[in-house]
Amino acid sequence: MAKTELNRKIDTETEVEDSTNLKGTLASVMILGAILIITWVGLYMLFLSR
């Protein structure tokens, strides 16, 4: 059970990941978000018009 102590000491703090360039990822998910919003708003309009 003393083994558990070992891992606790290891301090693998995160490297600064924000430096990773994820511009394309942000752009991609925003396109995805736009699809969600367009679909929803479009169908809500249809719902209101009926």
Partner: peptide
């Protein structure tokens, strides 16, 4: 737990949209 700055932006945006709906 670490989260990338862009992921925070994305989740706030997504959560906001769901909240509006």
């Amino acid at each position: 737990m670490h989260m990338h700055k862009f992921e925070k932006i994305w989740l706030i945006f997504g959560f906001g949209a769901l909240l509006v709906f």
